[in-house]
């Protein structure tokens, strides 16, 4: 047998061993990074959902507060809705909103349409992930005077998408 063949075989084995270790380590690092990114994306979507929930409730709140208690009438106050949106979204850093609210063809129905965008810097990745999706809130507003002359004015806000009465308030 030629001299040095075993040393040569061992050298080749050693190189292969180093290669396998490097590939395994690299795969582990990539796997760990993927988990962090997945967790980050989950967090962004969680915040987007929370922002959507808050803006939905803010729509109801703003519409209820737009009722004119004296004559017991309702007129959409778009500026008030926007103001409520701005104050609400400020509670969730990293999320922004762009909504417009208008009356729909169906009497008493008001619809807010727009987009919620949430972004977050993912740890161990150093990139900013963004999640943007449109949202629609449709509410039915009803104001009624229990007694025509001097009775109380009742404001009822119903979520048109779920049919749930969200506010039934005597104002």
């Amino acid at each position: 047998m030629k001299k040095g063949i075993f040393s040569g075989l061992i050298a080749v084995t050693a190189i292969m061993l180093i290669g396998v270790i490097m590939l395994t380590s690299s795969a582990n690092i990539k796997n760990s990074g993927s988990e962090n990114i997945a967790q980050g994306i989950w967090e962004i979507k969680k915040e987007w959902n929370n922002a959507r929930y808050l803006l939905d409730k803010a729509t109801t709140d703003a519409l209820a507060d737009s009722a004119n208690t004296g004559p017991c009438t309702f007129a959409l106050d778009a500026a008030k809705v926007q103001h409520y949106y701005m104050d609400t979204i400020a509670h969730i850093p990293g999320c922004t909103q762009a909504f417009t609210v208008a009356a729909t063809a169906q009497a008493g129905n008001y619809q807010a349409t727009g987009t919620i965008t949430c972004s977050k810097k993912i740890s161990n990745d150093f990139s900013i992930k963004k999640f943007e999706k449109p949202a629609v809130f449709t509410k039915t507003v009803s104001v009624q005077k229990d007694m025509p002359a001097a009775g109380d004015c009742t404001v009822i806000i119903t979520d048109a998408q779920s049919g749930l009465v969200e506010i039934s308030r005597v104002v």
């Binding site: 929930y53 803010a58 209820a64 506010i167 308030r169």
Partner: peptide, 22 residues
């Protein structure tokens, strides 16, 4: 700790915006 904000639209105070609560 998971922090999620809640919003009580029917806070019983007409004309005043409810504050989101964590």
């Amino acid at each position: 700790c998971g922090r999620i904000y809640d919003y009580n639209a029917d806070n019983g105070a007409p004309g005043i915006q409810s504050a989101p609560m964590d």
